[in-house]
């Protein structure tokens, strides 16, 4: 889990869970079908555009709104390995960590990241390298409590292992 390498995809501020998973898709039984509707209202082609990209870099208050964990699961299905945001909504952050996906809080601007950049995250060291832009950025390391959950691949796997 320490090192995550991937391609960046940029999103804006205040992306809500309603944006990520519109309510009308919530009753779909097949999560893969639901994932096709990810961010449909923001970018109708998102589920295609995201192909080949696996690190989301977003603005403020990412995941604001409802508690629907589908808004984490669809990203998991689409192959997202980590989310970097200026700030996260509380429930969304928990849902990310509980599902074993690192959420990194970082104040960034356009000089640091663009869509398509190759990114390397060294989680334990608190360093993000933008390989495309040849830049290194430090972030506040995640608390040990959080990295322990991530190491196990999520809170349910941790529970299964440790009881």
């Amino acid at each position: 889990m320490n090192e995550i390498v991937g391609i960046a995809y940029i999103l804006g501020d205040d992306i809500s869970t309603d944006d990520i998973v519109p309510s009308y898709t919530l009753t779909m039984r097949d999560p893969r079908e639901m994932a096709q509707f990810t961010l449909k209202f923001i970018d109708p082609n998102f589920s295609n555009d995201i192909t080949g990209k696996n690190i989301i870099i977003a603005g403020e208050n990412f995941g604001t709104g409802s508690s629907r964990e589908e808004a984490v699961n669809v990203f998991k299905i689409l192959g997202i390995k980590a989310i970097i945001a200026k700030s996260f909504a509380r429930i969304y952050y928990r849902n990310l960590i509980n599902n074993g996906i690192p959420g990194i809080t970082l104040n960034w601007d356009e000089t640091l990241f663009s869509s398509g950049d190759r990114i390397k995250i060294a989680l334990h060291d608190g360093i993000i390298s933008n390989i495309s832009k040849k830049k290194k950025i430090t972030f506040t390391k995640l608390p040990v409590f959080i990295t322990c959950i991530l190491e196990e691949g999520g809170v349910l796997k941790k529970l299964l292992k440790n009881g």
Binding site: S66, I91, R94
Partner: peptide
């Protein structure tokens, strides 16, 4: 409020 995984826990 909490998500589905937290509810399961």
């Amino acid at each position: 409020g909490i998500g589905a995984t937290d509810v399961s826990v």
